[in-house]
Simulated assay, not measured.
Amino acid sequence: MSNQNSYQPPYTLNSVILRLVADISELVGRFSALTDLSQALQLRRVNRIRTIRGSLAIEGNTLSETQITAILDGKRVIAPPREIQEVRNAIAAYDRFDTWQPEVEDDLLEAHGILMAALIDKAGAYRFGGVGVMAGSQVVHMAPPADRVPALMCDLFHWLAVSQEHPLITSSVFHYEFEFIHPFADGNGRMGRLWQSLILARWNPLFADLPVESLVFENQAEYYQALQESTRQTDSAPFIEFMLSTLCAAIREAVATDQVGDQVTDQVLTLIEAIGTDELGSKELMKALGLSHRPTFRKNYLNPALKDNWIERTQPDSPRSPTQRYRLTGKGHRLLLS
């Protein structure tokens, strides 16, 4: 039987975690001082698209930021219907983001209903059967039996409501415990990440727009490893460390972009403006820039932009692919809007 008064998730606060909490708190203050309201509002759309792409890509969705932008704008996109539905659901969920309270269980069920609408049966309801987390053909985690899920989630929400820990810690602990319980038949990963963002956004609005999902996507092997290690140790400290390190990297990048924006060359700035919110190939970029000499384009525009992480390849594992295209990184988007 559930005992809300004594429930305490197992986690250890080590020196690494405490240092990360201090570092993130300092960075949040610096970022807030650097960012004006108009720029923040402009950036919200860009980061929301990156967040949706990152969260869904972790689950296997192949749609690009350009395609997600088109769906957001109501344009027709040629792609698998399920993937389009996932994007539409995520857009609808983030439209409701500001209306949900993280400690309200009914809000989480409503969010799942929106996020998984037309994708699974019983969206918005806890699972009725057993589930396991797979890594290839291997079961790496068997979730608790379905009949225990309501009580376990009730305990977790009660702990969240009364916890005196810093929101950076409570959000990470909640995220790990949520994934351990695996309360839904599907959509647990994207819901856990969404709810951690919601908890953090109630602490500081910055986290409503910070594309942490993109960084998790870029480091998803470490994400799953941290989950597994926390389960093995019966202590969520490894997962807390991973999530706080990811958050710290995201904010540090945002702060650095504001501070070094004036160091970008005129050529690279022109390239960034030419790309905008699109994904363009070399020929398209050269045409947009009015260039005909490829070595000049690569030396003065493309290579410096790649080196300083203003842009990224859409096919990083095949840099010489004939279908290679380029898009702005989060750092590049911030500079474009500054």
Rank of each mutant, 00 (worst) to 15 (best):
V87G: 05
T69W: 12
V77K: 02
L56V: 01
I78W: 10
E83W: 01
A79C: 12
K75A: 09
I78M: 13
G74E: 07
L109T: 01
D98C: 12
Y94P: 02
Q67P: 10
S64F: 08
L56M: 09
G74C: 04
Y94T: 01
R96Y: 09
I84M: 08
T69C: 07
I78R: 15
T66I: 15
I84L: 12
A70S: 15
S55C: 11
I71K: 01
D106F: 09
R82W: 04
H112I: 03
E83M: 01
Q67R: 12
E103R: 03
L63W: 11
E65R: 13
E110P: 02
G113M: 00
A79V: 05
L56H: 01
L72A: 14
L56S: 08
Q101A: 04
A70E: 12
R88C: 13
A79D: 07
P80F: 05
D106Q: 15
R88G: 09
V87F: 05
E65A: 03
T69S: 14
T69Y: 09
I84D: 06
G113F: 00
E86M: 07
F97A: 06
Q101Y: 11
G113I: 00
N61E: 04
N89C: 01
D98L: 15
N89W: 03
A57K: 08
A90S: 11
A79W: 05
L63D: 09
D106N: 14
G60A: 01
N89A: 05
V87I: 04
E59R: 05
G60H: 01
I68A: 08
A79E: 03
D73T: 10
E65F: 13
L108V: 03
P81K: 06
E86W: 00
V104T: 14
Q85K: 13
D95E: 06
N89V: 03
I68T: 08
V104D: 11
P102T: 05
F97G: 02
S64N: 09
A93Y: 04
E103Y: 03
T99I: 13
Q101H: 15
E65P: 12
I58L: 10
E103A: 04
A57Q: 02
V104G: 08
Q101I: 12
I58D: 06
W100A: 15
A92L: 12
V104S: 11
Q67A: 13
A90I: 11
V77S: 04
K75S: 13
V87P: 06
S64Y: 12
E83Q: 01
L109I: 09
L63A: 10
T66L: 15
L72S: 06
D98F: 13
A90K: 05
Q67M: 13
I84F: 07
L108R: 02
A92P: 08
Q67N: 06
D95M: 05
I91V: 04
A70Q: 11
N89T: 00
D95G: 07
L56Q: 13
Y94I: 07
L109S: 00
T66F: 13
D73H: 06
I58K: 02
A93R: 07
P81L: 09
A93E: 02
P80M: 10
R96L: 10
L63H: 04
S64K: 10
R76N: 14
T99S: 06
